[in-house]
């Protein structure tokens, strides 16, 4: 456990030091959105402007498309892709790190998922506490906080002219060690950080009481509410693709000439194709069943398996929904009406 301070003036040397030691992933402005991308040396913008990444940093450990193995069509041999590099994600929001913790359980239970785990084990996360929560943040309703350290290796808090950094894990300490030259020892900034976080917590306006939702979801399976809340749904995958805890994937063989690869890519339970049988039968035939499954998965099925809600309250699904389907609205109706 070490506490450090990074003067903003030393930002570039800090970033460079991280990048020298590991593959550094950094929130980059791409068109109108932010997403995490490997540091290419020309990212000298700090994190001042950055609010949150539209595409969550889960994409670093569970890439949207990932090659599982390669082969030559007609041959029997398969070969694995290159080994993954040690990575450090700089600037993830605490909720996104908590989400990784949620996804970890899926990829570890029963049987290990080698691709995810290799990535995850080789990735360290430096989280940036949220001084100003965003419109649809509700992490505090889900045991989270703008300064939560769950899933993080290092927590970083913006103190205006400097950052306060605290390692949470050994890996975190090692990373701070790598960038030692740019850092100073902390002296009392810790409490300043705590205060900022506390203040931020108070600024979160949206919330939900999760008590009893799991049961209500089970009881209210056939409730008319599902028809109503799913009617406007377009059936797109924006909510799930941008959700930091959604982790479903598809596996496809892709062949160019004789070069074949089996890869997996994000899939969304909001797509009709997701559960469609080849026979044409679809156990979740309409957007109603799919919406119900999405909510149920997070607030019921996952809870039953891992005793934890698979939602971190980042609000992305609310903000990104083209037709304003609002999970908090649905949840509160579940509580009230079911």
């Amino acid at each position: 456990m070490s506490e450090k301070v990074l003067q903003k003036a030393n930002w570039s040397s800090f970033v460079q030091a991280l990048a020298d030691a590991r593959e550094l992933w950094f929130p980059v402005k791409d068109g109108p959105i932010y997403k995490f991308a490997p540091y290419s040396g020309d990212v000298d913008a700090g994190l001042e402007e950055y609010a949150y990444s539209s595409v969550p940093p889960k994409a670093v450990v569970l890439p949207q498309t990932e090659t599982m193995f390669l082969y030559q069509v007609g041959d029997k041999e398969t070969s694995l892709p290159e080994e993954k590099k040690e990575k450090v994600v700089l600037g993830a929001r605490p909720c996104d790190a908590r989400a990784m913790d949620i996804v970890d359980r899926v990829f570890q239970w029963d049987e290990d998922d080698p691709y995810y785990l290799e990535n995850r084990n080789k990735t360290a996360v430096i989280g940036l506490a949220c001084n100003e929560p965003f419109v649809n943040c509700f992490c505090t309703s889900l045991d989270g906080s703008p300064g939560s350290t769950q899933g993080l290796d290092v927590l970083m808090v913006d103190l205006g002219d400097k950052y306060y950094l605290r390692s949470v894990t050994d890996k975190g300490s090692r990373i701070l060690g790598d960038a030692e030259s740019a850092l100073e020892d902390a002296s009392g900034e810790g409490s300043q950080a705590e205060e900022i976080i506390k203040e931020a917590e108070g600024k979160i306006k949206r919330s939900i009481d999760t008590e009893g939702i799991r049961e209500k979801l089970e009881e209210g399976w056939e409730a008319p509410l599902w028809d109503e809340v799913s009617r406007a749904c377009l059936g797109c995958g924006a909510c799930t693709f941008l959700c930091p805890t959604c982790h479903c994937f598809d596996i496809q063989d892709e062949v160019e000439g004789f070069d074949g690869r089996r890869c997996r890519m994000w899939d969304s339970c909001m797509f009709g194709e997701y559960t469609l049988h080849t026979s044409g039968h679809n156990p979740r035939p309409s957007r109603k069943e799919r919406t119900r499954n999405r909510i149920s998965h997070k607030y019921r099925y996952y809870v039953e398996k891992f005793d934890k809600i698979a939602c971190v309250g980042c609000g992305r699904c609310i903000t990104s929904c083209p037709v304003n389907i609002d999970i908090l609205d649905i949840l509160s109706r579940v509580k009230e009406e079911l």
Partner: peptide
């Protein structure tokens, strides 16, 4: 640059 960013959520198609 624009298409690189697409996440293939198909919101454009569905909307």
């Amino acid at each position: 640059k624009e298409f690189e960013r697409c996440i293939r959520c198909y919101a454009c198609r569905n909307a």
